[in-house]
Simulated assay, not measured.
Amino acid sequence: MTDFKRIDFADVPGGALAACERLPNSPGVYGFFSPTPVLPTDDPEEFIATLNALVEQRASPVQSTRAGSLYHLTLDNFSHLSQRKQEVLREHAQDANFREELATIVERCMPLRAPLYVGQTATLQTRIKQHLAPSSDLAIRLRSTGLAIDRCVIAYRLMPDIKALRTPEVLTLTEEIVTRLLRPGYVSRIG
């Protein structure tokens, strides 16, 4: 996403709505990403707890559906460190240099994560403001797993000023391609 511009809502004085004022109201493709974590490195126990919470963060809301008249299926997308890896973490987390280096690695790998959500719009600023409303479908889906949309990172790319690339059909096609490539967990329907 090298030519996508990124704005971390948490870094903008005034928060997410103030960050929206920096966005052009032009056609574009965008993605919401998990908030950038800050791992506390002073205290080993706090470091371990925060790192575990980050690893265990859900990648999508729980999905439930019926399968026929007798079955109910639930899909849950989460992760955790094995008992053995927990022991290794606990042992090495006592070393301040280890905590500092691991915190740096975690921070640097965050841009490599899949987006939470991908979208497209003819009016980027307006659309992002709509998503930020507490009652928006995306804000509700994120909140269901403990994520606050106004603490996320937004990445966007404006569509070039070429008529064909700014049509609703091509914007939707672009969104679908990006969604299918990046597989964000909080998209309720593709396209």
Rank of each mutant, 00 (worst) to 15 (best):
D3Q: 05
F4Y: 07
K5H: 04
I7P: 03
D8F: 01
D11C: 04
G15A: 05
L17G: 00
L23W: 12
P24E: 03
S26G: 07
G28R: 02
F32Q: 01
S34L: 04
P40S: 09
P40T: 09
D42L: 12
E45H: 12
E45K: 13
E46T: 15
T50D: 07
T50F: 03
L51E: 00
N52S: 11
R58P: 09
R58I: 01
S60D: 14
P61H: 03
S64F: 03
A67L: 09
T74S: 04
K85L: 13
E87A: 12
L89M: 12
A96H: 11
E100H: 01
L102R: 15
A103R: 03
T104I: 00
I105Q: 14
R108C: 13
C109V: 13
M110C: 07
R113E: 12
Q120N: 08
Q125M: 10
Q130E: 15
H131E: 09
L132M: 14
P134I: 00
S136A: 13
L142Y: 04
T145W: 08
I149V: 10
R151S: 13
I154C: 08
I154E: 10
Y156L: 02
L158Q: 10
A164K: 14
R166F: 09
T167C: 09
V170T: 13
T174N: 07
L182D: 11
G185W: 07
G185Q: 10
Y186F: 14
S188R: 04
